[in-house]
Amino acid sequence: MSTLDRTWWHKQWRHLRLWRRFFAQAVVRETHFRAHFLTTLLVGLVQLGLGIVPTLLLFGFTAELHGWSRAEVIALVGVFQIVTGLMATFVAPNLNRMTTYLTEGELDGVLLRPVSSQFYLTLRWINVAELTNVASGVAVLVIGLVQADLSPGAGQIVQAVVLVGTGLVLLTAVWSAMSFLAFWLQSVNPIGFVFLNLMEAGRYPLVFFPVAVRTFLTFAFPVAFATTFPVRALAGDLGWGTVGVGVGLAVVAMLLVRLLWRRGLLTYSSASS
């Protein structure tokens, strides 16, 4: 009997193809709900505008705060919008239904498939409409960069992109870990709410917070990697060291979440009836 995947690489390839199918299906779904697309777009734009209000007001009282100019903070709001948009597109639709997966027995249907169940539960659903927020985020980022008179080189852009990537992985890991508590708790529905509210701290540069909070936002709830560090990389005042730390942290976080998932599954498979 031949095996399903000849090598480890074949297995990753199969999962990649599957993810492509998830995406195609999400696009098909979206075409059925045109009103949803429009509402998401409008709400996203209004929220983006709203998110800039405190920044604009703040810089009405001062020209510069802890080395950040208004234009740089606007660029940061743009990055924040990109990151939250990506999370809302690819991660949020999945982690928000973790309780349903576990309590309604939907997880059983997933465990029977020859795919990584963690991959499936974290990435199955995609909300394509939220990608509009990524687009508006890019626009705001460009406006901020132009106003700040910054023209980052290729190396800096690579740094920023890698940092946003690690930030996304780290935040997804934290949110996953919070959601996977569903294996042991009755309901984790409000946990996504806590996560999104904590995310709001990413709208501001890290140095705007007291030192203790900075540590929290770098290592415990690592939103700094997703917003502050990429913008600093674009401004050219960040070395590759931080990028390395970010990648290292992302790997550790993934391993820890993987471990937690395994523990959870063990509880699930021996306790569910």
Partner: peptide
């Protein structure tokens, strides 16, 4: 958990505006 989420935003705003004041913004 819900209420924990509810106090996140005010605390974040509080910290930001205190920083602004501390570094000399004329509010």
């Amino acid at each position: 958990i819900f209420m924990l989420a509810n106090i996140c935003m005010p605390i974040i705003s509080l910290l930001i505006w205190r920083t602004a004041l501390a570094s000399g913004a004329q509010l």
